[in-house]
């Protein structure tokens, strides 16, 4: 875009092919997922992903508010992705901006693609995603948290939805961008995968890539999603596994 007075671009890729935080191109940031972290919610999850901290809660199926959104043949899925004012470097004005509303829409549509909504007509399944600390990739972290929260709430679904962003950094295709890479990189491509079918239910892109780079990005993202999928299942297993109780003979 030429010199438009933006800040100095940091070195994003070392001569050895390592990234700004020392990761390889196909390496994810550390991810920790915990299911069932809120008492009041029907389902919840907390995700710490690199320097992202995201909490998700699910309420429902319950009555639809506002009422006119009610559907006679299925549940509506309402999603609210919100960033806390203190979650970014410069204070963000509280409330839903246009970016948050767009993200809420595509996340709701991703879940509507996998939830058996027809089992709960005239109800609403409300998904709340709160970004507490942001460092690029918050929509994917939010989607992963919300997906685990939906499972925690016992909502029947085709599958969990792992998600990750692939991007182009200093000319190279890289998995799971962090903030500097997102700000100064050439492209960002978030996606969410249905592992069982291998299909994508969320796919966005901004920046520029050739056809060949895009094709490689899809493969890299799908592989990343499969790794995250295992972590999501592990989090649910940890929440619901029970130690067999040794029955002592009287």
């Amino acid at each position: 875009m030429g010199n438009i007075g933006a800040k100095e671009v940091p070195v994003l890729l070392s001569p050895e092919g390592l990234r700004i935080d020392g990761r390889k191109l196909d390496e994810l940031r550390p991810i920790e997922i915990r299911a069932g972290v809120l008492r009041q919610a029907d389902g919840s999850a907390f995700v710490e992903w690199g320097q992202n901290k995201v909490m998700a809660a699910v309420y429902g199926p319950r009555e639809v508010h506002p009422r006119h959104l009610q559907q006679n043949n299925k549940a509506v899925i309402q999603c609210r992705y919100n960033m806390a004012a203190f979650s970014v470097d410069e204070r963000k004005r509280p409330g839903l901006d246009r970016r948050s509303q767009e993200i809420s829409k595509v996340i709701a549509e991703a879940f509507e693609s996998v939830v058996f909504a027809e089992e709960f007509p005239r109800t609403s399944i409300d998904v709340y995603i709160e970004v507490l600390q942001a460092n690029a990739g918050t929509r994917c972290a939010g989607l992963v948290a919300a997906s685990v929260a939906l499972a925690d709430a016992g909502i029947p679904m085709v599958d969990l939805l792992p998600a990750v962003a692939v991007g182009k950094v200093a000319g190279a295709i890289a998995l799971d961008l962090k903030k500097e890479e997102d700000n100064f990189g050439e492209a960002d491509l978030p996606m969410a995968l249905v592992p069982q079918s291998g299909r994508l239910v969320l796919l966005q892109m901004e920046g520029h890539m050739t056809e060949e780079e895009l094709s490689r990005s899809l493969d890299l993202g799908v592989a990343g999603c499969r790794v995250i999928y295992e972590k999501m299942k592990a989090a649910l297993r940890e929440r619901y596994s029970v130690e067999p109780v040794a029955t002592e003979a009287a």
Binding site: V106, E109, S113, S197, L200, Q204, E206, G207, T210, D219
Partner: peptide, 21 residues
Amino acid sequence: AGRVVAMQKGLIGAFSPDDVR
């Protein structure tokens, strides 16, 4: 210039990576 510059998947449904290609 032969570049893909933006993408957006919307509505309920899914596409495979091969569909996208």
